[in-house]
């Protein structure tokens, strides 16, 4: 994102940002992204972001966890897992077959949770391209404090630049900027 050319509108109010997004979308402008210091309710819907598929990933990871818990315990506690012989321990003559299923439940459950949580966590970091030590591509140091930003690619406008500037201004943008070749300049309209 660091090398993209962008037009940036700076807001100090979420309602203004929301109405800008709504108006631009109606005009058919493709919004590159918005940057906000806090999750703005319904902004994702307004921008037309599709619901994330991470939930499917979570389900798959959870199922894997359940499977590992089941296989792990059947392997260690019984001789019933295929042709494997794991030399299970006879503990006080307690069942060493499927009859011990009830006592396997807690560990199956815990591993399901563990895999779901870490699975979705890791998938989230991959999908959002986040990793420790990554240099953040921020447009304004205040975008994580109290400023809300809208970014539009000049190539995907669909309306004239003047019209865009007009809309941003009308909807209460406190500043307009353009980033070209990594340099940001304030545009006076």
């Amino acid at each position: 994102m660091l090398d993209k050319n962008l037009i940036v509108g700076v807001y100090d109010n979420e309602d203004n940002l929301m109405s800008t997004v709504g108006r631009l979308r109606k005009k058919g402008v493709e919004i590159f992204d918005c940057f906000t210091p806090y999750p703005v309710h319904n902004l994702d819907k307004e921008m037309g972001i599709k619901r994330s598929n991470l939930t499917v990933g979570a389900f798959i990871c959870g199922s894997l966890g359940f499977l590992s818990g089941t296989l792990l315990q059947f392997y260690m506690m019984t001789n019933h897992l295929g042709t494997f012989k794991s030399w299970p321990m006879n503990i006080g003559g307690k069942p060493m077959d499927y009859l011990m299923l009830p006592s396997m439940m807690p560990v199956m459950f815990e591993l399901t949770i563990l895999f779901t949580a870490f699975g979705i966590g890791i998938l989230f970091f991959i999908r959002s391209r986040m990793i420790h030590g990554k240099i953040a591509a921020i447009l304004d140091p205040r975008q994580t404090q109290d400023r809300l930003l809208i970014a539009i690619e000049p190539g995907h406008l669909g309306i004239s630049r003047d019209e865009l500037n007009q809309i941003l201004k009308e909807e209460g943008a406190i500043e307009l900027r353009e980033r070209k070749d990594g340099e940001q300049v304030v545009i006076n309209v």
Binding site: F35, P37, L43, S52, F124, Q143, T144
Partner: peptide
């Protein structure tokens, strides 16, 4: 981790 407050990231978050 390079957090920038993008609306897409917030959505997934």
């Amino acid at each position: 981790m390079g957090w920038d407050g993008s609306a897409r990231t917030w959505h997934r978050y």
